[in-house]
Design a protein around this nucleic acid. Structure first.
Lengths: 217, 217
DNA sequence: CCTAAAATGTAATCGATGATTACATAATGG
DNA sequence: CCATTATGTAATCATCGATTACATTTTAGG
């Protein structure tokens, strides 16, 4: 790409007094508005996102062919944040013990899901946009799954596991964690203890129960 | 209630040739239409249900105050079918072994969820109507949960369990099964083996893995 | 029976939404 | 400097949930 002056502050040339006809980076602003809408528990509508961006109802369609595409972009952003947090947790986990890393993975997963329920929902449900509509998200998710497979085969190599059927263990582990996150999302934890701490502690216990179940002893 | 002739076939008195002004049992027909819509993968709209009942768009609101109420009724019906199948499976399970009954419960649960994904979604998600909007469904679900608690405490009494923390085991079990069902629903099983048999076999394996994990050996 | 009230359906309409089209304005590059 | 492209606006459409006024049928009480 040809080098260009990178600093020019977006042609700040007000026509008379108002904001410029062209928005700075509408695509980005729309995604952020949609993320915020979801976070607030409101249903994400294209029009409301446009409203928050102080732009006409038709403007978003210059950046996204339809609502699904916007939602896919929102999901991609949420997934990016999700992954960032998982990897940060793994960086702090002991490098040598695969089962402890597996545990840290599950904890970080549930912790994020508990604290960002709306975003987790958009990422996971596949009801907000056609599957395959966001290859970025699909690839990213596949990489996380591959990570868990590596941990499990590492654990098996060290003789830490009771069963050799890693595929089965992996699916069960995914189902357990995914199910816990979705139960929280879908209102199956009827106002538990005091605050969020209670539910996160339960998440930890459930993960430990699972790991104890698959570990050789 | 006063006894009345029960057989009169709904006052079949056509005004001239057309169907009667009053529908036979519109409420029931609307619920069935909505169930069918969900089953077909379409999104359930009040208007479409009205269309299928050959009735005006406003008619459904004589029977349901709003869309949520219709969805709640649909969920109640689906839950009734769900529960019927679970209880049938338990009737055929051995009465003496709590863990085998627990297994049969999980299998029936997942089997139904795999074969009626749209209905399971409506039952479980709580996104289609306000929580508490269908006390019938809530109570029914609570009873099923109580069933699993009885099985687990029975298993503990017979010394079949490794841990005494039944609450933890129960939540983990629920999360596992719920998660598996939702993974299927949310498209996280990318076109597995040949048909449905493959995924139901995997469900069985996962349940067995869990039960083996919590059982004393 | 008969008739008034209640139940149930229709027609018309409203506001919100996703989406499309024609048009306006700004940014960019030859 | 100007033409092409990118980006935003305005107007419009169909669909949906919901409400209201009105029509018809059923039902119950005298």
């Amino acid at each position: 790409m040809p080098a260009r002056q990178p600093s020019k502050p977006r042609a700040r040339r007000p026509r008379s007094e108002a904001r410029p006809y062209h928005h700075g980076d509408l695509r980005r602003v729309l995604i952020d508005a949609a993320l915020q809408l979801a976070e607030e528990g409101a249903e994400v509508s294209v029009r409301e996102a446009a409203r928050r961006a102080a732009v006409s109802p038709g403007a978003p369609f210059r950046h996204f062919p339809n609502r699904d595409a916007l939602m896919a972009a929102v999901a991609a952003e949420a997934q990016r944040r999700f992954r960032t947090e998982i990897e940060a947790a793994l960086d702090e986990a002991p490098a040598a013990d695969p089962l402890l890393r597996f545990r840290a993975f599950g904890l970080a997963y549930l912790r994020w899901a508990m604290r960002n329920p709306a975003h987790f929902e958009i990422i996971s449900t596949g009801r907000y946009f056609a599957r395959g509509s966001s290859p970025e998200l699909t690839r990213d998710n596949a990489e996380l799954i591959a990570l868990t497979e590596q941990m499990l085969s590492g654990a098996a190599a060290q003789g830490l596991l009771r069963s050799a059927d890693l595929k089965r263990i992996q699916i069960a582990g995914r189902a357990l964690v995914y199910g816990f996150a979705r139960m929280n999302l879908d209102g199956h934890f009827p106002r538990w203890g005091v605050g969020e701490g209670e539910i996160e502690r339960t998440a930890e216990e459930v993960i430990d129960l699972f790991i104890t179940g698959i570990a050789r002893r």
